[in-house]
Amino acid sequence: MINNRINLENKSAVVLHYYNYRNSSLIVNFFVSDFGKISAIAKGVKGKNTKKNQFALLQPFQKLSVSLGGKQELLILKNIESTSINWKLSGKSLYCAYYLNELLLRLLPSHSDCQQIFSLYDNILTLLSRDAPELSDTDSRQQQAINYEIPLRIFELKLLEFLGYGLNLSHEIETGLLIEADREYYYVNDAGPCNIKPLDSNYCPVSGCTLIDLKNLQLRDRKTLHESKQLLKWSLVAHLGDKPLKSREMFKQLYCL
């Protein structure tokens, strides 16, 4: 008989999302550093005369240490502690962080070591939570948008890599030649950049310059940033399926982007 019991003790984790469950409990989607995505019931954490402290800790965007146990299909949260200072996110950076959580909810595997992505998530949230002063002139506003976008693009790129769908950013697929900065390419899904326009419509046009900048994680240029966004968005859709990302839709609505 297969033993389907799981016991995780004092694991580094974050909360990705939670749902109300019965009157005073929650079903919580955790991202456990060396296990991946996993759900557990947090009993009696909502409402009057309950473990209020736990409900505060179950809010997303805090670094936690959790213990979970029970049958795989019905894990129970046994213990939860805060392990460090919380990320201070507000406004746009908060909505960006929600986007990261939704990507992870949709794509993160279970039963696998995800420490690499966990520390990337940590770094990116730290970048997003840096105090960006609200500036009014147009130049600084654009600079601010770039400050939000660069961390998101790096996260998307590294997440695809981690999932085994890393982008080919170095060689043309027909000739095997190195990417040249001043050429235009057609990125073919699951293959890479191609010199010749493919016959079917499943490709994403991208400049050699953007491919090189992405490879070097140099995303300061506006054109590079815009093309990277298109390429990564298109690559993610292949793995996310038809269901659109809700947080992205809402971000567009909220900030008219």
């Binding site: 929600y98 939704e102 909810l105 809700k246 971000f251």
Partner: peptide, 10 residues
Amino acid sequence: HLSPLDGIGP
């Protein structure tokens, strides 16, 4: 409340 991951918007 707004809930970006549940699609509850303005």
